[in-house]
Design a binder for these strands. Structure first.
Lengths: 191, 191
DNA sequence: GTAATTTGAGGACATTTGTCCTTTTTGTTC
DNA sequence: GAACAAAAAGGACAAATGTCCTCAAATTAC
């Protein structure tokens, strides 16, 4: 809860009283390893704030291959944003890589927050803008970083993901085959 | 003007009177071939609606190579969105590939529109969401389409861009070198 | 603990792409 | 129209990546 309060205070000012009231709109959710937060083709009805654990975000393309968008961990928001804002079936799949605790809010309750608290209108707009910036950053990485650079960044920023995810997941995150990932690791660790 | 009205009406309902008033917040701008709508590192102060012409959006990466994000043409909004919303220096460069006519609105005037017209708050939110969806679509293309597929889509959706842009631009849009683009064309046109 | 199964490492070869060129084509100037 | 310049096509080889394997290590089941 404390971390969530910090998270919101980084976005906008929120009083203790408002936070207390806000928190009553949220629920807690526990996922076991392998559980889905959002399944493919289901309408995403919730946004989650990760208290503890790891979520892998991925989708399955036309050739039946999994492409991993990324991994969300502690103190991050996680949702299938497009599905959530448009309340349409989700292309993205969100799955727990390990036991994960979340603070969640439903679509309707979030809209109540927007309606009842001017602060939340502000928070909502900024979160939407942040989602845009994240997506832009993601596209920029796809354009500019080699698979090796992406691997090194993952190693730096989310080293524990390398333990929790399997080779297949990491390779699909890097946009290469297992074989190439194997070669990347060889170069990094043997020199 | 008519096209712009249609564009807005597709987003939200806007009365004739509101549109008349709205249009007074906009200016017309004419770019010659090669002119910049937004230069690198300048703060983007305007959003443009293209009446006629073609804008290439690109940036220059750490290795001094140009990467082309895409090409905007008639009846599309064009801006360096991140720079515009945050009023910070732009990574993206927007340049006219041919003589281009735009309807433009300044940052301050847009905020006046938001303030004075509830309709525009709605339009603004939806445009922001659309920008997110566009960026997501862009990332999805980067992940899923081969250079050849991208070329064929360009050929289908914006065939005239292939005349207006040079090989270098198109190759950087596809994410390959000139040599590979040459091979792609060879395969497409000789079989 | 042993056997069976899953997962990661890496060999061999084919395919693709990039680099560095030269040649050809197109467009421009006088 | 000839001469020049600019842009695109494409040859030759090197480097990177994918495909299809096998083998070793780790994990799980009994």
């Amino acid at each position: 809860m404390l971390k969530f309060k910090e998270y919101l205070q980084n976005i906008s000012t929120i009083s203790d009283k408002e936070f207390e009231e806000t928190i009553s709109y949220f629920s807690e959710k526990h996922l076991h390893k392998g559980d889905f937060f959002i399944k493919q083709f289901s309408v995403c009805r919730q946004v989650g704030f990760i208290i503890k654990g790891t979520i892998r975000i991925y989708y399955i393309n036309q050739k039946d291959e999994e492409t991993t968008y990324g991994f969300c961990q502690e103190n991050c928001l996680t949702t299938s944003f497009k599905s959530f804002i448009s309340q349409t079936p989700s292309d993205l799949i969100l799955q727990a890589l390990e036991d994960t605790d979340l603070l969640t809010i439903d679509y309707d309750k979030l809209n109540l927050l927007y309606k009842n608290y001017p602060t939340w209108q502000n928070i909502g707009r900024i979160i939407t803008q942040n989602e845009f910036l994240n997506m832009e950053q993601y596209a920029s990485v796809l354009n500019n970083e080699t698979a090796k650079e992406k691997y090194l960044r993952l190693l730096k920023e989310q080293p524990n993901v390398l333990q929790k995810a399997n080779i297949e997941d990491i390779a699909s995150y890097l946009g290469v085959t297992r074989r190439t990932l194997s070669r990347i690791r060889q170069k990094i660790y043997q020199k």
